[in-house]
Amino acid sequence: MSLSIVEIFAVAAALCAVLMAGSLHVKRNIFFYMVQTVLLAVVTAEIARTDGELNLYLIAVAIAILKGGCVPIFLRWMVKRLQSYSDPGMMLAPPLAMHASLLLFALSYLELGSLGALPGSALAASAAASLLLTGLILMLTRKTALSQIIGFLVIENGIYLFAVTQTSGMPLLVEMGVMLDVLVAVMVAGLIVFRIQQSFEHIDVTQLAELRD
């Protein structure tokens, strides 16, 4: 079985997400997120090379700088400000969560293995699905709002990976728009988390259960 470069890096990114599920240290999670995003940038660059598209190079650079650089820096600053270096975790213990996400990785490989629209993208598709599901697992097994943001970013990465590997890239304008959206979302989420901290003196999402009929 010979893997293309795209597939290798995509699977590596998915494995990064699996490792994130196994750790409760927020700073380590941010580091893994950074690695994962840079890997996605490499995937984009590789697709740009094979397709010969200049736009995708630009997007790869933008991803590496904005999502791989700015967002992790902002998140680390938030960790420091909020003094929440470690997440208490909930529902599943980290090792179990890691195994669950590995299981989901296998499941998505079995289910989505035949889905690849472009040649050599089948494994990338399953990696993308696994990123998405692992992101959900991350959000499910974390208690603090900060970790929720990180989980959300992993989901976003999964969606991006799926899009870029299955459609050989979107127009530059759309891609840039999406990326700015993510950036703004992280900023806004950060602000809200600060406010939550100020109002409730904690950022525990499980205690924010009043909003219902």
């Binding site: 959000m139 259960a209 219902r212």
Partner: peptide, 17 residues
């Protein structure tokens, strides 16, 4: 509709699967 973020996320995850 229990109001818990995690429960909603679980619904989301199960629906996706």
């Amino acid at each position: 509709q229990a109001g818990s973020v995690h429960l909603y996320l679980l619904y989301l995850c199960l629906t996706l699967l």
